[in-house]
Structure formats: C-alpha cells, structure tokens
C-alpha cells in the first residue's frame, strides 16, 4: 500500500493546497485594491467562509474518490472500516483535560500501512465520529482534512523497524509535532467566523493597524484559547505512542501479511477437466 500512484499523491497535494488557501484566505485579501473597496468589500467579506467550505468539500471529494478507485480491495475496506470505528470510539472516550486519542491510530497506521491508508483512516474517523455524535457542520471538512493529513504525513517517516526503541521515540516526536500543527487547525476552524478578515483590519480594529499587528492578535487569541488544549493533546498522543506504539505496530504488521499477500495469488492450473 505504500506505492499509491503518483497521481494520487499529486491530487492530495493539490487538494490540500486549495484547502490551505481556503483556510488562510483572509490573509491573502490584503491587496491595496481591497482596502479601497470600502463598504462593498465589507459587505462581501462574510460570504467567504461558506464559499470556501464548499470548495473544501469538493477537494475532499476529489481525494476520497480517487483514493478509492482501483487500489482498494475488500480486505482494505473492511480493515479500514473496523479501524475507523475504533478511532471514532477512541475519540469519544474523554481523557483528562479534554485530551482525546484521535491521532494515535492514524499516526501508527499511516506509518505501518502507508499514507493513503492513514489519510482515509484519519479523515473518515472524524466523519464517523461526527455522524455518531451529531457533529456534522461546516467545520467537518476542515477537521477531516487535518486528521487525514496526520495519517498521510506519518507515512513520511522511513521504516525504522531495525532501530528498535528509536522507532517509537521518533514516531512519538513526529506525532507530537503533527498533533500541535493539525490540532491547532482543527480547533480554530471558527476563526474566520469570529475574527474579522485581516484585509479589513484597518476598518475593523483600529485605524492604521497593519497585518503584523493583526497576526499578533491572532496569536494572542490562539494562546488564550487553543494552545493549552493542543499541547495537552499533542503530549498525550506522544505519550500513547511511546507506551503502546511498539505493541500496536507489532499487531498491525502481523495482520499486514494477512491482507496483503493475496494481491497476486499464485494460481496454477493443472489436472484434468471434469468428465
């Protein structure tokens, strides 16, 4: 499964680029024209989130449609289904301080079974958890994207099996980094709704306030709301990987053989036709 077609990789990259652009859109609309546009621009500023969400849904569709075709077999579908269920349950178990183990399995499975598997596991487990708990909303595509990326990016770690203990340490560190970056994105999906677009900062905040100042305020907002949450989650995931990573990886690899070997069955026809 590690050799997903290069086209799939490109599709994921392009779709993710659109996703990132959509997320950071408020920062792009900084051209001087925009600032001159005055009232009209402000009146339009609020359409952006909805349009962007629709774009993100499209990109997610593009990824899911293309990862599916051709490379999937029934074992992968079933194993993914089961692991997605498990991850959704893990997410629902409340840990201390809002911690949830949602990145634990995508990181390990992405590493063991490849990026495509990891992406699907991450993205779909958020979908399932939203469907279970009634969490469908405009934030869902963003969350699916980020959790999918955690799984995808975990496949970038080369196979470290022969280094023993080092393997889980590297994975734990990488998991913590991914947890911080994507945890932040996941938690602040509402920024575009709460915070004014940066392009309009001159009007919305106080006269003459530049982008730098705006960014600073975003940063303060982030520290005040999301940072502690994310630190807890990233640390928690790293701890889980450190503690359980080796055992879980061992099981995943045991099963890998069971659902992979059959792809080219050695079928040999010999013997008589029935008479």
């Amino acid at each position: 499964m590690r050799q997903a077609g290069w086209m799939n990789t490109l599709i994921i990259l392009a779709a993710s680029a659109v996703g990132v652009a959509a997320f950071l859109y408020p920062f792009f609309t900084l051209s001087p024209d925009q600032q001159m546009a005055g009232l009209a621009a402000r009146a339009h500023a609020n359409d952006a989130p909805l349009v962007l969400i629709i774009l993100v849904v499209f990109c997610l569709g593009a990824i899911l449609a293309n990862l599916g075709s051709g490379e999937m077999n029934s074992k992968m579908v079933a194993v993914l289904g089961v692991l997605v269920a498990m991850n959704a349950v893990l997410r629902a178990i409340p840990g201390p301080g809002g911690f949830s183990a949602v990145f634990f399995l995508p990181i390990l499975c992405g590493y063991a079974y490849g990026g495509v598997f990891g992406f699907l596991l991450g993205a779909l487990s958020l979908l399932v958890s939203a469907l279970m708990g009634g969490g469908v909303g405009p934030w869902l595509p963003y969350q699916m994207f980020t959790a999918g990326w955690v799984g995808l990016a975990s496949a970038w770690i080369p196979d470290l099996r022969r280094f023993g203990r080092l393997e889980s340490i590297v994975l734990a560190v990488w998991g913590a980094v991914l947890g911080m970056v994507f945890g932040a994105i996941m938690n602040i999906w509402f920024w575009p709704f709460v915070m004014p677009p940066a392009g309009d900062s001159t009007m919305y905040w106080s006269a003459g306030l530049g982008m730098r100042e705006t960014l600073k305020r975003y940063a303060v907002f982030y520290v005040a709301t999301s940072l502690w949450w994310d630190l807890g989650r990233a640390g928690g995931n790293a701890l889980l990987i450190l503690l359980f990573g080796p055992a879980v990886l061992k099981v995943l690899r045991r099963f890998q053989a069971r659902f992979r070997f059959h792809i080219t069955p050695a079928v040999e026809h010999a013997g008589a036709e029935p008479d």
């Binding site: 449609a65 993914l80 289904g81 997605v84 269920a85 779909l124």
Partner: peptide, 10 residues
C-alpha cells in the same frame, strides 16, 4: 467506497 467504509464503521 468512502461511504462503504463509513457504513461498516458505524
């Protein structure tokens, strides 16, 4: 396919 996986999971 994504729907199938989701349905199995649910």
């Amino acid at each position: 396919l994504a729907g199938m996986i989701t349905s199995i999971a649910l």
